[in-house]
């Protein structure tokens, strides 16, 4: 089966004021595949992920160098002339801690469509239903669409956040340690969901858990101190790493 590129990171450097966090990362993201970013705390994996939808632009002193090309149009989403809004309309994100808005379940999922100015209620309802189904939350939520999202359990909230990100049909879905705040059962739910979703959407996931990375990802990038050390097919990285540092990390000698 042929692999298509969905995005390409090229010589990406990133710094917060004086502090350099990423030192020239080059990385492909393949279509309809799950790419895991792993590495010890502080290696820059979350920082890299947040570059993909320009989250850093919300805070002062963020500086990018290099580019992230989004395929098929090969637009550099880090370009100064591109409004972060456009990037975020094309790339969705789910955060470490579930962060539903204090609104109803329906309004949470519809939020992305509403801010785009979609008015047609039937379209919104249809899209909400589809997204909730994709996120595996439809059965639990269909009878309480108008009740507050904050009343859901932690795992349900995170699936709601995934549905919220899916509702706008993102080209890439970013998952930033999506299960770190969840219990084991909810974690398994989310992992199964990732396996399902990769049929329709390209996923980049940051995770602390090597087991999780091995279970859900097709490709893995190991990062260390702001550098990309090794990138390859997941089965190869976890069974037969090429770099000594990758091996040390995978065998649990640091982390």
């Amino acid at each position: 089966m042929e692999l298509n590129l969905r995005a390409e990171v090229k010589n990406l450097e990133f710094s917060y004021g004086e502090k350099k966090v990423l030192n020239g990362i080059t990385l492909p993201i393949y279509e309809n595949r799950v790419t895991a970013l792993i590495g010890p705390s502080g290696c820059g994996k979350t920082t890299l992920l947040r570059c993909f939808n320009r989250m850093h632009d919300l805070y002062a002193n963020a500086q990018y160098k290099g580019e992230i090309l989004l395929y098929p149009d090969k637009r550099n989403i880090l370009g100064k002339e591109i409004d972060p809004m456009e990037v975020r309309m094309r790339i969705g994100m789910v955060f470490q801690k579930p962060n539903p808005f204090p609104k109803s379940i329906l309004e949470n999922v519809a939020y992305g469509l509403r801010v785009r100015g979609v008015k047609k209620q039937s379209f919104i309802e249809e899209r909400v239903e589809r997204s909730l189904q994709q996120a595996g939350l439809w059965k639990e939520a269909k009878d309480r669409l108008n009740s507050p999202a904050t009343a859901l359990s932690g795992g349900q909230q995170q699936r709601l956040c995934i549905a919220r990100a899916l509702a706008t049909e993102p080209e890439i879905l970013l998952l930033d340690e999506p299960t770190s705040a969840l219990d084991p059962i909810s974690t398994r739910h989310i992992e199964e969901l990732i396996q399902e979703l990769r049929k329709d959407v390209t996923i980049a996931i940051v995770t602390h858990s090597l087991h999780q990375a091995a279970r859900v990802s097709d490709y893995t990038a190991f990062m260390y101190l702001g550098d990309l050390i090794e990138f390859g097919k997941s089965d190869q990285i976890y069974t037969n790493p090429k770099d000594q540092r990758t091996e040390n990390y995978i065998t649990g000698r640091f982390g």
Partner: peptide, 27 residues
Amino acid sequence: VPSHLREASFAVGASRMQTSFRVVIPA
């Protein structure tokens, strides 16, 4: 208002004004 709510709003492509009116002020 916790910044993770703002981030959630920006992450789906909302503008500052939309985030302000639809998320921050209600919260």
